[in-house]
Nucleic acid binder design. Structure first.
Length: 283
DNA sequence: ATGGGGGCCTGCCGGC
DNA sequence: TGCCGGCAGGCCCCCA
């Protein structure tokens, strides 16, 4: 599911429920996901207060009162859903688990947050908050696309040395951290840049134009609660609705929506992933 | 050394 | 109706 806008949407939904509350009990219902859970995960969570719920790229980061941070990645199909132990709200009653509910956080005060992930491509880890940026999962990440350090200068220098096309370069989390298949396709279309163009052979002025476009797409998607194709749910369980604003993603064979363009959206495959683009207005 | 392909999982959809 | 192939918001490892 989740690229930056989906993860940020989930973070915003969880924040009022988790921040300032202790995890009374952590129910770990399997050994791990894409990789094993950290040793003694439940004990290291229980009784700890969540001081702050942050996001870095596609990772949720819960800083705990123990001095450790819980790192969560939602993979392709991960969800974090809010329920309530007393009321037994959300899609199943108290004490009953839906298929693929792998971890349940029971918070002080009765709120419950369930991590559900059908494909189990998600990840959880615990590491000291101090020096967290050196964690192997985080240390190679490029700048936040919505942050100050993401600029045309950065993009130009990151792309200069590589041979790869713009599409695959922007999917590389070391170049910019948080974009995925949907938002790379959408941003390149809005910028009028071909996904097949070599990053190193893109005029600086055109790269410069890409920076605000990436920010614009991400901000619009966050405002819409993310994109729900099949798996993404907000923490409340609601759908996001940015998928209705897609201009290229999933629109193969349909007309290009760029004003004045009479092109047809095409699908091709790059690095094993679908690319949607308009050969007419993306050069 | 970079880039691409395969693998990890399950679910869903369309075609036969 | 049922089965099979293809495809899916990610990422890591391995090989050229």
């Amino acid at each position: 599911m989740p690229e930056l806008p989906e993860v940020e949407t989930v973070r915003r939904g969880l924040q009022p429920v988790m921040e300032g509350r202790a995890i009374a009990r952590a129910e770990i219902r399997r050994d791990g996901l894409r990789r094993p859970f950290p040793a003694r995960m439940a004990e290291r969570l229980e009784g700890r207060r969540v001081e702050r719920l942050r996001r870095r790229a596609k990772y949720l980061l819960a800083d705990l009162s123990s001095g450790e941070t819980l790192i969560i990645h939602l993979g392709m199909s991960g969800r974090m859903l809010i329920g309530d132990d007393a009321a037994g709200t959300f899609h199943h009653p108290h004490g009953v688990h839906a298929r693929h509910d792998h971890v349940v956080f029971h918070l002080e005060g009765g709120a419950r947050v369930t991590f559900n992930d059908a494909r189990r491509f998600g990840v959880m880890d615990l590491a000291p908050t101090d020096g967290l940026e050196e964690h192997p999962l985080l240390r190679d990440l490029g700048p936040e696309p919505l942050g100050n350090t993401f600029s045309e200068t950065h993009l130009a220098s990151a792309l200069r040395a590589r041979r790869s096309p713009l599409k695959t370069a922007l999917l590389d989390q070391r170049v910019v951290a948080g974009l995925g298949n949907i938002y790379v396709c959408e941003a390149l279309h809005r910028a009028g840049l071909s996904p097949h163009r070599q990053g190193a052979r893109t005029a600086p002025a055109r790269l410069a134009g890409l920076v605000p476009v990436i920010r614009e797409v991400l901000n619009e998607a966050i405002a819409a609660g993310g994109s729900s194709l099949r798996d993404h749910r907000q923490a409340s369980g609601e759908l996001g609705y940015f998928q209705h604003a897609f201009r290229v993603y999933g629109r193969e064979g349909e007309p290009c929506l760029t004003p004045g363009c009479d092109g047809t959206i095409r699908r091709s495959v790059q690095a094993g992933r679908s690319t949607f683009w308009c050969p007419r207005c993306q050069r």
